[in-house]
Amino acid sequence: MTDIDKTAGPKGTPPAGAEAIKAIPVRHYGRYVSAAIAIAVFAAIIYAFSQGKINWGAIPDYFFDDRVLQGVGKTLLLTLLSMAIGIAGGILLAVMRLSKNPVTSSIAWFYIWFFRGTPVLVQLVVWFNLGLVFEYINLGPLYKDQWSDFMTPFLTALLGLGLNEAAYMAEICRAGLLAVDEGQTEAAHALGMSHAKTLRRIVIPQAMRVIVPPTGNEVINMLKTTSLVSVVQFSELFRVAQDIGQTSGAPVEMYFLAAAWYLLMTSVLSVGQYYIERYYARGSSRSLPPTPWQKIKASVFSLGRPKGGMA
Rank of each mutant, 00 (worst) to 15 (best):
L121F: 10
I107H: 01
F115D: 09
T79R: 09
N101I: 05
R116I: 01
R116N: 04
R116H: 04
F110Y: 07
L78Q: 14
L93Q: 08
W109I: 05
L92H: 05
R116Q: 14
V126I: 14
I112E: 14
W113Q: 15
V95C: 10
F110L: 15
T104H: 01
L80M: 12
L98Y: 04
F114P: 02
N101H: 01
A88G: 08
T118E: 03
P102D: 01
P102V: 02
F128C: 04
F115T: 07
I107M: 10
L98E: 08
L121A: 11
W113S: 15
G89N: 06
L81W: 14
L81M: 13
G89S: 09
G89C: 12
T79W: 03
V122F: 14
L78K: 06
V95D: 00
T118D: 09
V103L: 03
L78G: 02
I107N: 13
T104C: 02
L124A: 06
W127N: 04
L121I: 11
A84D: 02
I91C: 06
R116G: 00
F110D: 09
R116A: 02
M96W: 09
G131V: 08
N129S: 06
V126C: 02
V125A: 10
T79P: 01
S106H: 07
L92R: 08
G89I: 01
L130E: 08
P102N: 03
I107P: 11
V125W: 14
S105D: 00
W109L: 15
P102T: 01
T104I: 12
L121K: 06
L93T: 09
T79S: 12
I107T: 12
I87R: 03
K100F: 00
